[in-house]
Design a binder for these strands. Structure first.
Ligand code: SF4
Ligand code: SF4
Lengths: 148, 148
DNA sequence: TTTAAATAATACATTACGGTATCATTTAAT
DNA sequence: ATTAAATGATACCGTAATGTATTATTTAAA
């Protein structure tokens, strides 16, 4: 019950790129900031650039930039783009299909949880994280040290 | 963002065993009911029997039975016993340590979600699932077919 | 005491994920 | 054209999760 490492990386990357919407970020720069294993970062960036969240510019002085407005990229979008199986609609107990007409006692409880999670993840977008997210955060870096 | 296969199996197994508190269930019987890969099921049952949730009786006519009252086994207990990392208290974005004094904008939102999940999982126990869970479910098997 | 039916232990195989290495391609500057 | 600095493609490697196979041990019944 965790997000995959890959998804975690994607969340770090995109929330970092949100700091400057128009900037072209090189893999090198993202690596220096986030310390994600360089080769793996490179691989994931090319994968992500096939989604509609970021695009890559090849060649010298190339890099990656966001391809949508900050308000149009939610945390859920990032999770989905990173390939993580999101909390599925499947049976909590793992039954492939459930033929119960009246759902069992846990069904609705869990569906409520899933809905809540999806709500939180889909209503939080990069615009919000730009000013107050894990990176920007009101110039807190003037006062505090981020530990990676 | 999913439970492991192993945890899913544990949830199936324990909620099934809740149907008859005193019964000694053989691996064979659980296999026939739940269709969990037999060898893997066997392995997991011996692992689970080292937790305080179920115990094994060896020898002919042996098997497994619950070792605590139904009310004292929560879904969270099962998840923990199965070895799955529960949704951790770590930073949503994966920072090992966060030095922010004022938490970033997503911190509290996510903490609320985690709390909610833990609440639901720890307040649902096998007693509740016995009569109304995925297996028992008010004699629904007289009317419907469960599909595994 | 032997046998049968169960679990325990252990080793092996397969797959998915995370991570690394190498080479190819693109593009701007010279 | 050549070069340098970037990304793209691809193949490989290591580890953990999942699944399978084999042998050992336990225990009740005959
Ligand atoms: S009703 Fe219960 S068994 Fe059926 S899908 Fe929902 S949680 Fe699973
Ligand atoms: S404040 Fe933000 S960056 Fe810090 S631990 Fe919480 S979620 Fe992570």
């Amino acid at each position: 019950m965790n997000f995959s490492k890959t998804t975690e990386y994607a969340l770090k990357i995109l929330s970092y790129m949100a700091l400057d919407y128009n900037k072209l970020y090189s893999a090198e720069e993202i690596f220096k900031e986030l310390k994600i294993p360089y080769r793996y970062l490179r691989k994931q960036l090319t994968i992500l650039s096939k989604s509609d969240l970021i695009k890559s510019i090849q060649g010298k002085f190339g890099g990656y930039k966001l391809s949508k407005k900050l308000e149009d990229i939610s945390l859920l979008d990032i999770i989905v783009a990173s390939g993580d199986k999101q909390l599925s609609n499947n049976c909590f107990f793992g039954f492939n299909e459930c033929a119960f007409q009246e759902k069992c006692s846990f069904h609705n409880k869990w569906e409520k949880v899933r809905t809540e999670i999806n709500m939180v993840l889909s209503t939080t977008n990069l615009a919000e994280l730009k000013s107050n997210g894990p990176h920007g955060h009101a110039n807190s870096n003037l006062l505090l040290t981020k530990i990676n």
